[in-house]
Amino acid sequence: MPVSSMTGFARFEGQADDAAFVWELRSVNGKGLETRLRLPQGFESLEAEARKRLGARLSRGNLQVSLTLDRPENLSNFSINQAFLNELLRLSDELVQAGRAAPPRADGLLALRGVIEVSDEAHTADWFTQRAPAILDGLDAAIDALVAARQSEGAALRAILEARVDEIETLAQAASDDPARSLTAIQARLRRQVTDLLGTETGLDPARLHQEAAVIAAKADIQEELDRLNAHIVAARALLGEGGAVGRRLDFLSQEFNRESNTICSKSHAASLTAIGLQLKVVVDQFREQVQNLE
């Protein structure tokens, strides 16, 4: 299964008998699946089924889903609220007879809110029931397009993440091969430090020097960290190969990568190893940043 990004856009235009409709789906990063639906008036009953279909195909991301509908104009019927109009005329006659107002005009009366009522047959149950299946089929097509868009971006992200994992592996190997980790190198460095302090090598006890170097080497040993790094590298490659919704698990691995990198830097006793550890932290941070985009 391909790796998917959480970012994407899809648009589907369709026809449901005499009504044209458009679905638009936008997706951005999110900790879980959060869906915001905007539906035309009268179509609120579609929301539950729409959420069900979105949830069946997508597991993470903040979604904005909108449906616009172009209804035929001849579906709207107009009627006059005769009782309301008669009451307005009665009140107008009283005001005119009292000399407090001029006789009302027809256009003025009809312009008052509530005099003309609009009944939209597009909101009737029969009209909606007949067209709902085609509209929901359009949603499925829009979801297909969104999934394809997210997978296309996911393929690009996978290549970037695999490159970062390769860099982590290279740096881990460089740390493992660093000559500064050897007991001989530690003894030489310790000898120089003592000589600089005393100003002479006279009186240095080789056995004591060896003992102190061994203690330093034990405290600075990073083999466990390197072993865990290599295990995480294998796990990251397996998840990228598995595909699907692996973003959360890769994010956990990125935290583990960062933990081992920090420990390597804290244990480092040589500039060369510190440089490797710092570069490792940079690459791990790049890895984690890209993982945030994965489903």
Rank of each mutant, 00 (worst) to 15 (best):
Q97N: 14
Q97V: 07
Q97C: 10
A98E: 13
A98I: 06
G99N: 07
R100G: 12
A101R: 11
A101L: 13
A102E: 15
A102L: 13
P103R: 13
P103C: 01
P104D: 05
P104C: 08
R105E: 13
A106R: 11
G108S: 03
G108Q: 13
L109P: 02
L109K: 11
A111W: 03
L112E: 09
G114I: 04
V115L: 09
V115S: 00
V115E: 10
I116M: 11
I116V: 15
E117W: 09
V118H: 07
V118R: 15
V118E: 13
S119C: 03
D120Y: 01
D120E: 11
A122L: 08
A122M: 00
A122P: 03
H123C: 10
H123E: 11
T124V: 01
T124S: 14
A125Q: 13
D126K: 14
D126P: 05
F128I: 15
F128M: 15
T129N: 15
R131K: 11
R131V: 00
A132I: 08
A132F: 00
P133N: 03
P133Y: 02
D137K: 14
G138H: 08
D140I: 07
D140Q: 08
D140C: 12
A141H: 09
A142N: 02
A142M: 00
A142V: 04
I143A: 12
I143W: 02
I143G: 05
A145K: 12
A145S: 12
L146T: 03
A148G: 04
A148L: 07
A149S: 13
A149K: 02
A149V: 06
A149D: 14
R150W: 01
Q151W: 02
E153W: 02
G154E: 09
A155I: 00
A155G: 12
L157D: 02
R158L: 10
R158Q: 14
A159V: 14
E162R: 06
A163I: 03
A163N: 09
V165K: 00
I168E: 02
T170L: 10
T170E: 10
T170H: 06
A174H: 06
A174N: 03
D177T: 03
D177I: 13
D177S: 13
